[in-house]
Simulated assay, not measured.
Amino acid sequence: MIGRRNFGKALGMVTVSTAAASCGRTSDPSSASAAVQTRAPASEIDKTSRVPSFGVVGQIHAGELNIGYAETGPAHGPVVILLHGWPYDIHSYVEVAPLLAGHGYRVIVPYLRGYGTTTFLSGKTFRNAEQVVFAQDIIALMDVLRIERAVLGGFDWGSRAADIIAALWPRRCKALVSVSGYLITNRKAQQQPLPPTAEWAWWYQYYFSIARGELGLAKYRDDFAKLIWRNVSPTWHFSDATFNRTARAFDNPDYVPIVIHNYRWRLGLAPGDPRYDGLEAKLAEGPPVHVPTVTLDGALDPFTPTGNGAAYRSKFTGPYAHRTLQGVGHNVPQEAPEAFVRAVLDADRM
Rank of each mutant, 00 (worst) to 15 (best):
residue 8 G to S: 12
residue 185 T to L: 11
residue 117 T to D: 13
residue 40 A to M: 05
residue 337 P to T: 13
residue 311 A to T: 04
residue 334 Q to M: 15
residue 86 W to M: 04
residue 166 A to F: 08
residue 32 A to V: 07
residue 31 S to F: 06
residue 137 D to H: 06
residue 201 A to S: 15
residue 16 V to P: 01
residue 29 P to R: 07
residue 71 E to S: 13
residue 180 S to Q: 11
residue 168 L to R: 03
residue 84 H to A: 04
residue 201 A to N: 05
residue 98 P to A: 04
residue 106 R to M: 06
residue 220 Y to M: 10
residue 252 N to W: 12
residue 29 P to G: 07
residue 287 P to H: 10
residue 97 A to K: 04
residue 82 L to F: 02
residue 211 A to H: 12
residue 344 V to Y: 10
residue 309 G to R: 00
residue 7 F to Y: 15
residue 58 G to W: 11
residue 160 R to M: 15
residue 197 T to S: 08
residue 242 T to C: 03
residue 12 G to I: 10
residue 177 V to G: 01
residue 281 A to N: 05
residue 50 R to T: 10
residue 344 V to I: 15
residue 313 R to L: 08
residue 186 N to E: 12
residue 214 E to F: 07
residue 334 Q to S: 15
residue 347 A to P: 09
residue 242 T to P: 01
residue 341 V to R: 06
residue 152 L to P: 12
residue 348 D to V: 01
residue 105 Y to R: 15
residue 163 D to I: 00
residue 52 P to K: 04
residue 58 G to E: 14
residue 227 L to M: 06
residue 62 A to W: 02
residue 268 G to E: 02
residue 214 E to G: 10
residue 156 D to P: 03
residue 21 A to S: 13
residue 260 I to R: 12
residue 294 V to C: 01
residue 88 Y to C: 11
residue 56 V to F: 01
residue 159 S to D: 11
residue 203 W to K: 04
residue 155 F to M: 10
residue 74 P to Y: 13
residue 315 K to T: 13
residue 131 Q to P: 06
residue 129 A to V: 09
residue 204 Y to R: 01
residue 9 K to F: 11
residue 5 R to Y: 12
residue 85 G to F: 00
residue 312 Y to S: 05
residue 263 Y to D: 00
residue 311 A to Y: 07
residue 259 V to P: 03
residue 48 T to Q: 13
residue 213 G to F: 04
residue 63 G to T: 07
residue 305 P to D: 01
residue 167 A to Y: 08
residue 33 S to K: 12
residue 47 K to N: 06
residue 162 A to P: 12
residue 216 G to D: 13
residue 305 P to N: 02
residue 25 R to M: 13
residue 189 A to R: 08
residue 75 A to Y: 08
residue 170 P to D: 00
residue 336 A to Y: 14
residue 229 W to P: 00
residue 327 G to E: 05
residue 67 I to M: 15
residue 160 R to S: 15
residue 23 C to L: 09
residue 19 A to I: 00
residue 100 L to E: 02
residue 230 R to D: 12
residue 195 P to L: 05
residue 169 W to H: 14
residue 59 Q to A: 04
residue 201 A to E: 02
residue 291 V to D: 11
residue 26 T to K: 03
residue 190 Q to N: 14
residue 43 S to L: 11
residue 190 Q to C: 12
residue 95 E to T: 08
residue 112 L to S: 09
residue 66 N to K: 07
residue 93 Y to V: 06
residue 244 N to L: 09
residue 192 Q to F: 04
residue 47 K to S: 07
residue 216 G to E: 11
residue 90 I to D: 11
residue 9 K to V: 05
residue 55 G to Q: 10
residue 234 P to Q: 09
residue 157 W to N: 05
residue 136 Q to V: 09
residue 61 H to R: 10
residue 236 W to H: 13
residue 350 M to F: 14
residue 267 L to Y: 09
residue 302 P to T: 07
residue 69 Y to R: 07
residue 97 A to V: 05
residue 93 Y to Q: 08
